[in-house]
Amino acid sequence: MASEFKKKAFWRAVIAEFLAMIMFVFISIGAALGISFPIPSPLNETNGRTQDIVKVSLAFGLAIATMAQSVGHISGAHLNPAVTLGCLLSCQISILKAIMYIIAQCLGAVVATAILSGITSSVEGNSFGLNSLSAGVSAGQGLGVEIMVTFQLVLCVVAVTDRRRHDISGSIPLAIGLSVALGHLIAIDYTGCGMNPARSFGSAVIAKNFQHHWIFWVGPMIGGAAAAIIYDFILAPRTSDLTDRLKVWTNGQVEEYELDGDDNARMEMKPK
């Protein structure tokens, strides 16, 4: 792990996750908060707008797709602790990188939400995109929703980034973005959709409200872990020895840092 810690490419990847997370949260939560601003009617009366679920879902999905296209070749563009956990369990990244990614993602989400808190300070009852259970939805039901929507997201991520596949001709970032949008279309009415624990964490910190916050960590992490394990060991089992694969947890992927001795080698977000 110590050798990986010294690699420039390692820190570039961590910084990329931090900056991309700032942009992702700013765009997506900004779209959600923007619908709270009153707009003048033709009669110059002030009317409020109800939440546009499609707009918010597309904002989340397109923001992820854009950031994945921008930094996917640098960090893999996880931008979600649940995705990072899935990649860790798939033996695609080291434990050290997983920890640093999650820290960078959480800090990026806090910074972006703090910026939005200043921009949307005039919004009455501003919750800064805080996730919460809808009326009539129990903690157990909310947990189930988060598990399921995150399961489909991480299953999509590990499937479309599987380097053994050569049948993918479309855009991988767009496929992942559509999966994120789909998850929001499903879950917004139940929990506000907390399939990204770091995103939920940023809102909770700025809003200073951690009620039911555990749901938005436990649910996505269970869903992400289950998707990675089921894909790797049941749907598309790998032939490589598990012991050799587990070495990635301590050393990282060889091709990320030591390809032809080049410290600038990058992990591409496309099948190989």
Rank of each mutant, 00 (worst) to 15 (best):
L19I: 13
L19Y: 01
L19D: 06
M21S: 08
M21Y: 01
M21P: 03
M23S: 07
F24S: 04
F24V: 02
V25M: 09
F26M: 10
I27H: 00
I27P: 01
S28C: 06
S28V: 00
I29L: 12
G30V: 05
G30L: 03
A31P: 01
A31I: 02
G34V: 01
G34H: 06
P38N: 10
I39P: 05
P40T: 06
P42F: 06
N44G: 08
E45R: 09
T46F: 12
N47S: 10
G48V: 14
T50K: 12
D52S: 14
V54Y: 10
K55T: 14
K55G: 07
V56E: 03
L58F: 15
A59Y: 10
A59W: 03
A59T: 10
F60M: 13
F60L: 10
L62E: 02
A63V: 13
M67Y: 08
A68R: 04
Q69T: 14
S70T: 15
S70H: 12
S70C: 14
S70R: 03
V71A: 13
G72H: 11
H78L: 09
L79K: 01
L79G: 03
N80L: 04
N80V: 04
P81R: 00
P81A: 09
A82T: 05
V83G: 07
V83N: 00
V83H: 04
T84G: 05
L85G: 00
